[in-house]
Each structure stands twice: as C-alpha cells, then as structure tokens.
Design a protein around this nucleic acid. Structure first.
Lengths: 233, 233
DNA sequence: AATATAGTGTGTATTTGTTACACTATTAAA
DNA sequence: TTTAATAGTGTAACAAATACACACTATATT
C-alpha cells in the first residue's frame, strides 16, 4: 500500500517542544541542526516518523535520545501541514510538547542523533531565530500550557519531587508571565488538596527554611482524571 | 523527495466530525462506505490528503462536498497514528470537527464523492457501529466541544442566525448532557454582552412568542479573539 | 367554556470564589 | 549584633455562580 499511490504519499515528522524550569524561568531545549536545510540553525528536536512506528513512539524515542529519561509528560499539540513550511516540499509535522524535571537530568543533554550538532536549553523569553515554522510551534505550545495549567496542574511535571510553595508559585508566574499574590496562591493550591506536606524543610536556598511539599498522586488522579500521557510505555 | 525514502512514506487522510443540532439533540453526519475495507459500514466523512494540498484545504473540500456550504466553523482535533487503526497498514488521520447550522442546508446531504453510498445525520446518542477508530474520534470530539463551549461560545455556530435563548439553552444542555437553570443561563449569556436583542419574536413554535437574538459579531470577535477557523478561504 | 400544559419571563438571597492588603519570624551575611 | 532577604500567615470587600418561586400566555384537550 505504501508505493501504489505516489500522489498520496507524504513524509512526516514529529517536533517536540521540551520545556524545563530552572532559575525561575522556563527553558526550551533546542538543537543546532547539522543538516540541510537550515544547517547551523536552531530548531526543535524532531525526526521522521517511520512508516511502522506510532507517532507517540517516535516522540518517546526523541525524548529518550535527548534526555536519557523515560516517563516524561507529553501531549500532542497540533499537526502542521502547510505546503511551504519545508523548503523541499510538503512535510507534515505532528508537534508535541513535553514537560521535564530538569533535576532528573544527569548531565547536559548530548544528542545521540547526528542530525544535531548540539542541544542547548534556551530561556523561553530569549529565543534565537528558528528553522522552519518552529517559532510558531513554540508559541502555540506556550498558549496550550498556559491554558492547561489553569484546569489541570501539570505544572508539577516541571518541578522536582519535593518542592516549596514558592518554587511552585515562581513556576506559575513564569508560565503566565505575571506576578501572583502569595497568600492567594497558597490558599488556592492548598485548597486543591492534592499536595502532601512533608516534615522536611529546604535549607540553604533562602534565608529562612521553607516547607517542602510533594504531589499526592492519588488525590491528584482523583481530581484530574484527564488522561495524561507519559512517555514511558 | 516523495519517492526516495519509502520507509518514511505514509498515507494519510482527514476525518471530519460534522455536528449539527436539530430537534433538541446533537447530530453527526455519517456516510455509508462504498469501498473496502468496511464496505457497508458507517463512517466519518473523510478522504485522502493529496501531497500538494493543505490539511485544512482537504477538510474544506470534504465539508463542501458533503454540505454544499463554505465558511463552516472547523477546528483540528487530533492526529491518530496507531499502527492497527487501518487493516491495510498504518494510515494516519488528522481528525477535525466542524459545527454546522442545519438550517443552512438546502436539502438532505448527498455525497458528491463515490466512496460513500449515502450520508445521513445520526443522533449523537444513538450511533451505529462505526468503521476504524471513528467512534473513538467522535468521543474525543465531544469532549473537546464540551470543554470549548465553556470558554468560547462556539455553540452559536450550530444555531440559525436568529435564535431564542431557549434554543440556545437547549443546545448547551444537549452538549453538556445536563439540565441548566434557566435564569442563571440567561443572566450569564446576556452578561457576555455578545448577543444583540432583535425587535422580532418567534411565533408558532411555542405557546408564547419568544424573543429573538442574534450574535453581535463585533463584540464576539473582541471578546473571543481566539483564532477561530472557518472553512471559507 | 373550562382546564391542563408547556413554554416564556423576571428578582433575590446564599454560597462560593477572587482579590487586595501588612505584618512577624527566621536565617544569612556583613 | 545589625541588616537584609525571604517564609509564612488572616481577614475583609467584592464579584461570580448558584439555588430557588412565581406570574403570564398561547395552545390543546376535555
């Protein structure tokens, strides 16, 4: 079936917007392309989808290659099929976004693939020019994440297992791009009843020791039964 | 580029969940397939995407072929790429949903295409068995529409230009599958400030003449600047 | 002609959620 | 030990969502 109908054949790829959070700001993992077109440009990690491979599987592969991790939160974003998005003909891309705990990374990401010269975390607010329509894809991802964290607290996927409420608030502020009221934020978060207060405190980061919390996954699942996808199989 | 890399070639299609609203219930347009596989089964209208055609364009084509109308509200839903969704090999489908004013239809839909034997509006609550994973696609569409009408009043796309608040409420009730309080519904809708009260009344439908409203498109656009896509170019 | 019915139409009280706002306790660094 | 930075806490005003009860009218049935 693959070869009979050449005018119906299409090549397609996935591109993945991988978000991380560090130093109070959102980061995106970009690769420097080592292939034409756009050789030397920054781009989203992504690759072709094989004809015997699920799209999800292709994304999981890309995530693993770039992070060495499995079980990363990921979700399909949108499929882009403009005729001119790729200079060499119409290539469709199914874009995903993923949320990553940067603390889980052992080291700086080193791309296993050879289509990339390097992979670097870029602050979202200061992105270089990007290949193809990748800037557009990132913008669309942010909008999605922004909307989604207001009805499903996926933000936790960006934090270490144990976190302070201040960290959580800074994360929301980074995603929404505006300051939040500390007391109101805490009230609301604790009212969700999905956080477990830990006996421990975080020391050394700030002047005063800060209470640590972690996500209560049972209650979390109860309240937000939206099927969240993770890149582990 | 199309023929060099056979293992990267995939065939893909779009499938379109076309919703309508009549007699107080949501309807979905289904076709009876005239081709194998699943010949004789009910399925979503959809077709192959040509390699020199935008996905949006393919959907617009399908919408026009089945309704004779342009300018229908449509939005991309999700891209399905399971290996087993099509018995003859992996065919990716980009699913869209569309909202249609049934009153705009001149006549019963007659498929121009010959892959369909007939096209029939089915009540959403009583669907036949469907080909492929089309049932799954429909379910996902409903969830999307349900969520979307709470933050963006796309429901108007299903109503005639002039409508009563009762009709609007019945539509919301059909989409959400639950009764709403009449007074609260009216209050909320009128508070959006996107409805224009008409001097006219609707007679003959109910015992009492009912006030007609129409959408104030300027204010609507101001408040909900979410890029809504319509199938006109 | 009387009556039942289904639909339209309106206001208020209650609850719930959102926002605004200021001080003390603790720790680190000078 | 003094200074500066951050953690942590409660309440009042306001806005929004919800619950709730009744009056009116056109039509259909008896």
């Amino acid at each position: 079936m693959q070869s009979n109908l050449p005018h119906l054949q299409s090549i397609f790829t996935t591109d993945c917007v991988i978000f991380g959070f560090r130093e109070g700001e959102l980061k995106v993992l970009l690769i420097e392309r080592n292939e034409y077109p756009f050789k030397g440009w920054w781009a989203l990690p992504g690759f072709f989808v094989e004809h015997n491979e699920t799209i999800d599987d292709a994304v999981k592969r890309i995530l693993y290659e770039h992070t060495g991790l499995r079980g990363i939160f990921m979700e399909q974003l949108y499929t882009f099929g403009d005729l001119k998005r790729h200079p060499q003909g119409r290539i469709i891309t199914v874009a995903y976004y993923a949320l990553l705990r940067l603390d889980d990374l052992k080291s700086q990401p080193e791309p296993v693939t050879d289509y990339a010269r390097q992979a670097v975390w870029h602050p979202l607010n200061n992105l270089p020019d990007l290949a193809f329509d990748h800037r557009h894809i990132i913008d669309k991802s942010i909008l999605k994440v922004r909307r989604k964290i207001s009805y499903s607290p996926i933000a936790f996927e960006l934090l270490p297992e144990k976190f302070t409420l201040t960290q959580l608030q800074q994360l929301y502020e980074a995603i929404w791009g505006r300051k939040l009221d500390k007391r109101n934020f805490r009230k609301k978060m604790l009212n969700y009843n999905i956080l477990k207060e830990l006996p421990e405190f975080q020391r050394g980061v700030s002047y005063r020791a800060a209470r640590l919390y972690k996500l209560d996954k049972r209650k979390y699942a109860k309240v937000f039964q939206n099927e969240l996808t993770f890149s582990k199989d």
